[in-house]
Design a protein around this nucleic acid. Sequence first.
DNA 1: TCTTAAACGAGACGGTACGTCTAGTCTTCTA
DNA 2: TAGAAGACTAGACGTACCGTCTCGTTTAAGA
Lengths: 192, 192, 192, 192
Amino acid sequence: MSSPRGRPRSERARLAVLDAAADLLIEGGMAAATMEAIAARAGVSKATIYKWWPSRGHVALDSFFTRTKPTMAVEAGATLEDTLIAQVGALAGLLRDPATASLMRETVAVAQTDPDIRSALDTRWLRPRRAAVEGVLRDAAERGEIRADVDFAAAMDQLFGPLYYRLLFRHEPLDERLAETLVRQMLAGLSP
Amino acid sequence: MSSPRGRPRSERARLAVLDAAADLLIEGGMAAATMEAIAARAGVSKATIYKWWPSRGHVALDSFFTRTKPTMAVEAGATLEDTLIAQVGALAGLLRDPATASLMRETVAVAQTDPDIRSALDTRWLRPRRAAVEGVLRDAAERGEIRADVDFAAAMDQLFGPLYYRLLFRHEPLDERLAETLVRQMLAGLSP
Amino acid sequence: MSSPRGRPRSERARLAVLDAAADLLIEGGMAAATMEAIAARAGVSKATIYKWWPSRGHVALDSFFTRTKPTMAVEAGATLEDTLIAQVGALAGLLRDPATASLMRETVAVAQTDPDIRSALDTRWLRPRRAAVEGVLRDAAERGEIRADVDFAAAMDQLFGPLYYRLLFRHEPLDERLAETLVRQMLAGLSP
Amino acid sequence: MSSPRGRPRSERARLAVLDAAADLLIEGGMAAATMEAIAARAGVSKATIYKWWPSRGHVALDSFFTRTKPTMAVEAGATLEDTLIAQVGALAGLLRDPATASLMRETVAVAQTDPDIRSALDTRWLRPRRAAVEGVLRDAAERGEIRADVDFAAAMDQLFGPLYYRLLFRHEPLDERLAETLVRQMLAGLSP
DNA sequence: TCTTAAACGAGACGGTACGTCTAGTCTTCTA
DNA sequence: TAGAAGACTAGACGTACCGTCTCGTTTAAGA
């Protein structure tokens, strides 16, 4: 029943840091989002940031999660194709937003270096989305709508992989019709 | 017929830098591959590195290209499926090697920040591979082996995207049978 | 009544820098007293030095002033000759100490390049000494002990100039009896 | 009787180096007269400079000697006072020229660090001038024009020291009448 | 109301790496 | 063989952030 003694953590400071970090990341990428700059922009002491986040990457990750809306609901009563298109399209739509794209790119880049960030990204971002869509697909397999011997993991990769591929390499835009094309092409196959 | 004046560039230094950089990148990632460390390890002056490479990212990129074997030949006289599996499998095999994987991850991460690096990666790495496989697919379309209305770009993304997706997020390994699964699933589709 | 915010300046660091700089200057001259070496020897960050001193020359100057005792008192109740000998002798004695001589030589050398240093040396070192002795001489002139048409500035130069001349060119030592000789010769003249 | 094999030393290069060095020294002091800058300005290879001069200081010294006219003749048939004034005045006149003053200041500064330079300056510059004037004074002493117990070295310091003192500290200008004042004041003394 | 203790801002600190500069040396071709 | 060109190693330069630290100053819960 004891409540913590002393001055409570400042919510104002927490939000100011996440906001400043997100803005800096979007404007100038990881290079611009130095601890010094985040602290200055947030009007917060560096020590305060270090008290609550262990590294720059964690601040970036938190900014990303804070700025990005949930968008993961699976609607009932729709065809398999429509459901998949909705799911993949939702992610594509998110990544089409330049600010979100920027944050996601930086987060992936940081994750290559920091295992902490990578596992958080995996647990809190990647897996839930894959699991949701994989569930849809497994249900369809049980109903006989798709073949039973499908490699579900590979199928997830073929739906989501292209989005990150285009996000990171930018060889093609993440246009409106991409989700539809990916889903249709995967379900029907290329053979005539 | 004129020969260049002055002392010629030292091939020894060039190779030592690329080697040192690659080793450091593999061992400790971009964080370990400081210019200072590369110079020390290569037994080369920092000034010499800056003379020939504009940034750390460029050295990393060059290391990657130097360390990575060509692996892009398209063999004649094989079925479409076998050709695609061979191509995708070649890249998967490359990225399965921990050292190459490490270099590739760092290169992609750097590319998010440095547009120079990104365009070099695009021009010298991504496009040739996509173009080769796209050619194979377009030939097959002309012969009527696959549908004519295929979105070739999306198809390339569905073959290569999953590889980079697994490389960068590490949610699943890049195992031996992945290429085969990806190709078969894409050609035949998931429908029964 | 407001007290300064933040961590207060470290007196330990300030003294360590001045000490290290003085030692290095004495041991190996300006060439040895690099910022890098001073920082290393003082166990202080280079950034800290640059924060408080704008250049190497300023550190050298400060070292000199810190290491050099005041020695400028004018005693009352003595003959003109004795007073002058005491004053000139005090400076000669200071410059006879190898460490002080070394610091002074470096400081003069630096002053040739850096106007800041030169003016500080002028204001804080040269002028007070000249003024003190010039005062003694002007009093004597008023009392009629010396001629009234003396060029006081030139007289100062004839007393102090020889000391610096010997310090910098080292053609003759700054021996014990120099001050006495200079004063006597100046007062009495060379004529029989 | 053998004449040297190969291409003879280029007098053009030697003069170009000394000229470039002197100009740079006058314009921006020792800081501006880098080997790089001298070589570039002279249109000469750095290696060539290092071949003939052991250090930057030596080039500076040589520039100084090359640029500075002899001015050391002792005229016969004049009073002691006039002879001394002529000698001291000649040096003062030289040091009044801003370019020469600049070169001399830099040379003295360098001499504090480089013993080679110091000894060259002593041998080729200081001693001859002092010896010439000391000779004049000793002759006068023999003729009984001045006292016999004069400290000649100190007397030289009282004539020349003030000039260098003013040159290096710049507390007073090296004006036209300085030589006369110094000589008269020294010969007659300050006493009434 | 007063104490107490954690959180806060400010900012100085020891470090590390940055990218630049100059010193000297070395290597090649040309005169 | 001297010289010009210019690449090389070595190492200091001054700057920018890092992550830590020491201050004096809030701020709310508990006494």
